[in-house]
Design a protein around this nucleic acid. Structure first.
Ligand SMILES: Nc1ncnc2c1ncn2[C@@H]1O[C@H](COP(=O)(O)OP(=O)(O)OP(=O)(O)O)[C@@H](O)[C@H]1O
Length: 794
DNA sequence: ACAACTTTCTATAAA
DNA sequence: AGAAAGTTGT
């Protein structure tokens, strides 16, 4: 439909990237410069103009959602051929590879994928057998160590050889047992998917050759966050044709903690002779002020490739830094701004994202959103798929799919209660050991002859035949049919319904949703299968799992927001110990990564950013005083407005006895000196006041109007969340919004009844913005910002 | 074996 | 504060 103008949507540099299809290409550029778009169009161009069959192209993305959206966009550009493209995350691609070719290296095609909880459970077993002090060496720490070993492609022997201390010694021992246990369970953990895929390609030249023949063009997005195993995989696959195009930004490397190595993108050019390096400098996403702030933050880091971005989008509004009393008030502020803007400024809920450093911080935000009736969607954290009942159901499915999976078996053998307790399970384990059979087979043996009591024998045998029958029947059933059969035959639903508790009724509903999920899967998958469904369950990213971002406010971690964009972004919890996180504060490298993370957060925004920090916060149930994040200090003062809330009873004191206020607040904050907060607040109020004197200064309240960059195309990795046109606003709304504009902290005002005064704070929590004004004659009063008797004093 | 109660631990980030 | 783990009584 686009004809010859396919590449018209690209600038010159992007077009160069899209047209250079042979040999190594590195697209290296800052945030929002159109890297992903260049990649997408490059694929379309290859198929459409260069006649390359889509099945010869492999595109690796960071989430499956990104892969699907890329496919969809390419489908729009070139038609249904795009469906034959290979696109996905490293993990899903490896999983598919191993299902197909895994037997070559001894992996049965019905392997199951172990998630973190399964891994930890397995390590616990390995640790207990190995008689290791599990106090000093927690399963979690060992899991981390094993995982980082795997990311470097170290097998247990390599790990033992490279050990550096007593901890590594233990890890090496556990690692070896752990791998043994995985084999016995016919399971792979997340990291194994990569490790085994590399092993396959390295050791089976025929398989490698077949894949190289098929995958002649390899493209990788977000290359700054790949680990060594992934690097090796890409290298192997692209070794023959050497048509490898990678895209990334060293400033956005935020996954070092899980083994990603930013050096791999920095050395790409050296690694691949004749690499064409393409740098993109025009930013299409954000306002100049957002870019200024982002650059001011990231330039502090050393050892980075300097990239200066420019934009035609205009300056935009000043970014806002809000000081909240505590986390609740912070959340109320966010919800208040959203509610008011959606009401008054013609924005939509989907235009907003609230970003935070840690998943646990979503709680307050959620309740604030609920309170104001704002639709929201939490990405990641404790989601649908993490609920106990879903994991139970998944465990049933895994066991039915792979009868060797003892971890899943243990999980559900007594769910619902079947009178098979811990004691019985450990007897079964012993039996399995002594007879050299799987735990599942041990159930059958135990039912025939063993020292179990009659009731237990029957229960175990009954469980065995139930699973056995499901396993056999599954072959002829649809995925949703299997799911339903499990729920019925296991008695799981019955038990929940019989309990009569409200929570359990909710659980029944949740399980019903998984049935729906299975039906949807059947409809969308090319060849639906239980294995495919389980793979999806295991490998979907948090972002993939989230639904309906198109009509709600998105709540997610900064990590999850990578690659996305939103018109308006909130970044909450800008405090020392939170962002940067205290566990990163002791290490320069980790601190630099925290800074990059903040850079990523800022650069998600198209037209407005609100940052907030709380003076106090409840952590582990007890109150803590918080210091504003060091990153806030790096923001250019001329591009930000600071606000704080005078409703806190302490604030007015600042105008009288400031020292007392400081003392009082120091106590409030748990003994931590917050003088710095006050100093900064004063400075910024003064700066803001000074700025407001100048006529051309944009208003503090984002109007959703003039400075808004043009709406994006159907929208990046965020389908329905595109920006609204400004023309849609009614004159009445415009007038209303306009009258609110100039009242920021420090503004001098005059009131018909109260006389002259100065704005002490702006309250955005309510539906209508209110200001607290210190009147010279009448003292401090709180008034609606658009009150007709209130005027700005020139 | 299991429900109800008490104590301890927890919250980086994620496929 | 809330979840997980541990403990007690039936
Ligand atoms: N040539 C262009 N003309 C107009 N808009 C563009 C152009 N290229 C990209 N854009 C828009 O700019 C925004 C950012 O593009 P894109 O997501 O591709 O950037 P990116 O470099 O991948 O960003 P990030 O580094 O954050 O992942 C998108 O909304 C995209 O539609």
């Amino acid at each position: 439909m686009i004809g010859l103008s396919l590449l018209d949507d690209l600038n010159d540099r992007q077009r160069e990237a899209a047209e250079t299809i042979d040999g190594p290409v590195l697209i290296f550029a800052g945030a929002g410069s159109g890297k992903t778009r260049a990649l997408t169009y490059r694929i379309a161009h290859m198929v459409r103009e260069k006649g390359i069959a889509p099945e010869h192209i492999l595109a690796v993305t960071f989430t499956n959602k990104a892969a699907n959206e890329m496919k969809e966009r390419i489908t729009r550009l070139i038609g249904d051929d795009a469906r034959r493209l290979w696109a996905g995350t490293f993990h899903s691609i490896c999983s598919r590879l191993l299902r197909r070719y895994g037997e070559e290296i001894g992996i049965a095609p019905n392997f199951v994928i172990y998630d973190e909880a399964d891994q930890t459970a397995l390590i616990k077993q390995a640790v207990s057998i190995a008689d290791i002090d599990s106090q000093a060496y927690t399963p979690t720490r060992i899991r981390w160590a094993i995982s980082s070993g795997k990311n470097e492609l170290l097998d247990p022997q390599d790990y033992a050889r490279a050990r550096k201390g007593p901890f590594d010694e233990i890890v090496a021992r556990v690692y070896s047992r752990y791998q043994q246990a995985l084999r016995e369970n016919n399971a792979l953990d997340f990291d194994d998917l990569l490790v085994k895929a590399v092993e396959l390609l390295r050791s089976r030249p025929k398989v490698l050759a077949a894949l190289q023949e098929r995958l002649r063009y390899v493209l990788v997005d977000e290359y700054q966050d790949i680990n060594y195993a992934q690097y090796e995989l890409v290298k192997l696959l692209s070794a023959r044709e050497r048509n490898i195009c990678v895209v990334g930004d060293d400033d956005q490397s935020i996954y070092g903690w899980r083994g990603a190595n930013v050096g791999l993108i920095l050395s790409f050019q050296a690694d691949n002779p004749n690499t064409r390096v393409i740098k993109l400098e025009q930013n299409y996403r954000s306002t100049q002020k957002i870019l200024d702030c982002a650059h001011a933050v990231i330039r502090v880091n050393e050892d980075r490739a300097e990239k200066r971005l420019w934009t035609e989008n205009g300056a935009g509004d000043n970014l806002v830094v809000y000081e909240a009393v505590n986390e609740e008030e912070e959340a109320a502020y966010v919800a208040g701004v959203v509610a008011r803007q959606v009401r008054n400024s013609g924005t939509r809920y989907a235009d907003y994202a609230v970003l935070y450093r840690a998943n646990a911080m979503s709680r307050n935000l959620e309740s604030a959103m609920r309170e104001k009736g704002i639709p929201y969607e939490v990405v990641g954290g404790m989601s649908f798929y993490d609920r106990g009942e879903i994991k139970d159901l998944a465990a049933y499915l895994k066991l039915i799919y792979n009868l060797d999976d003892s971890i899943s078996l243990r999980r559900i053998i007594n769910k619902p209660a079947r009178n098979i307790g811990e004691g019985t399970v450990s007897r079964l384990t012993q039996l399995a050991h002594s007879e050299g059979v799987t735990l599942f087979e041990a159930c059958r043996l135990a039912g025939e002859e063993s020292d179990l009591r009659k009731a237990q024998k029957e229960a175990v045998l009954h469980f065995y035949s139930m699973i056995r029958r499901l396993h056999e029947d599954a072959a002829a059933m649809s995925v949703s049919g299997i799911v339903k059969a499990v729920l019925e035959r296991s008695g799981y639903t019955d038990a929940l319904q019989a309990s009569g508790k409200a929570d359990d009724a909710d659980r029944v509903d949740t399980l019903g949703e998984l049935v729906t999920d299975a039906v949807k899967y059947e409809q969308s998958a090319d060849e639906p299968s239980l294995g495919g469904f389980l793979e999806r369950l295991a490998l979907l990213s948090d972002l993939d799992k989230a639904e309906d971002l198109g009509s709600s406010v998105s709540l997610m971690t900064v990590h999850a927001s990578k690659g996305l964009e939103f018109p308006i972004v909130f970044i909450v919890g800008m405090e020392e110990g939170i962002f940067p996180h205290e566990r990163s504060m002791g290490d320069q490298f980790e601190l630099a990564e925290e800074r990059r993370l903040f850079y990523v957060a800022l650069t998600r925004a198209q037209r407005m950013v609100y940052m907030s920090h709380a003076r106090g916060r409840t952590i582990y149930g007890s109150p803590h005083g918080m210091i504003p994040s060091r990153f806030l200090k790096d923001l250019p003062p001329e591009s930000i407005d600071c606000k704080f809330d005078a409703d806190s009873p302490l604030m007015p004191r600042m105008f009288g006895d400031e020292e007392a206020a400081v003392r009082e607040r120091t106590v409030l904050a748990g003994g931590i000196d917050i003088t710095d907060v006050l100093r900064r607040a004063r400075e910024n109020s003064a700066a803001a006041a000074a700025q407001r004197q100048e006529p051309q200064t944009p208003p503090a309240q984002p109007s959703g109007g003039e400075t808004v960059p043009e709406p994006t195309e159907a929208g990046k990795r965020k389908p329905a969340g595109a920006t609204r046109k400004k023309a849609a606003r009614s004159p009445a709304k415009q007038k209303k919004a306009a009258s609110v504009q100039p009242l920021g902290t420090g503004t001098k005002v005059v009131h018909e009844d109260f006389g002259e005064g100065i704005v002490v704070s702006v309250d955005e929590k309510g539906d209508e913005p209110a200001v607290t004004v210190a009147f010279v004659a009448k003292g401090i009063k709180k008034i609606l910002a658009n009150h007709p008797k209130l005027k700005v004093r020139r």
